[in-house]
Amino acid sequence: MRYERPQTIEDATALMAGAEANAFVLAGGTDLLVRMQSDAFEADLIVDIKAISGFDAITQTEDGFVIGAAVPSAALSEDAALVAAWPGVVEAANLIGSTQIQGRCTIVGNLCNASPAADSVPALVAADARAQIAGPAGTREVAIADVPTGPGKVSLSKGEIIEAVLLPKPEPRTADAYLRFIPRTEMDIAVVGAAVNLSLGDDGTISAARVALGAVAPKVLLVEEAAEALIGSNLDEAALEALAVACSNASNPIDDKRGTVEYRKEVAGVLARRAAQTAYARAGEN
């Protein structure tokens, strides 16, 4: 196995592009290093991207925030402007694993690991975040929801590396929230995750909304019907009920060791309701 620690993104993408097989990008390593313990896992090349300039930075721009691919989750919660703008994204990133894990893990890693249960991904989708991708043919941007294509699979081409996550500048009176269900209090994987991002109009009604679910389908779901249930409402009981029904109906989970189909569908609605209430309260304070 070869370990490389390039200083530039060009070198990093060239290494990945030139690898024959079993090449992996290493940032926090909280997924990769665990997988490397398994008998079935084989790695020929590890490209550590932590030394690349700017990859460890959160930058506020006119358009919003640029979060480098090597920024650990814990650093997100220490950026006051980011916390104020996107509290749901930050709380999602800080539910991953445990306090120790959050000191190393990154939201880009969470995205590229492509687990249907990834915590930060529904929050990023609800926030309408985009991924900035560097590759041998230059850079491109895609919606976060288009990065994972199924369990463990991503839409990146050979040699491509996600450089950063781009979060937009939120509209006035906008807030997000993320909730996930786990049987334990930490050190666990989401059985269901729900993220809600909403904006309030001048009269306090919801003018825009995005609702995303995790762990209820092969990949993260953006639930349009759920957003429609919220828009135009004051988050009254009828809107909440319509939201919950839309989320339950949109869920297409499997029975597995972490939960049953019926359980996940029902709890998707419950968590969406609760996340919407939190986002609504936060938006009202903005």
Binding site: R184, T185, E186, I189, R258
Partner: peptide, 10 residues
């Protein structure tokens, strides 16, 4: 991960 013994915070 999936054989869930309690952690301290539980």
């Amino acid at each position: 991960l999936d054989y869930r013994i309690p952690v301290c915070s539980d």
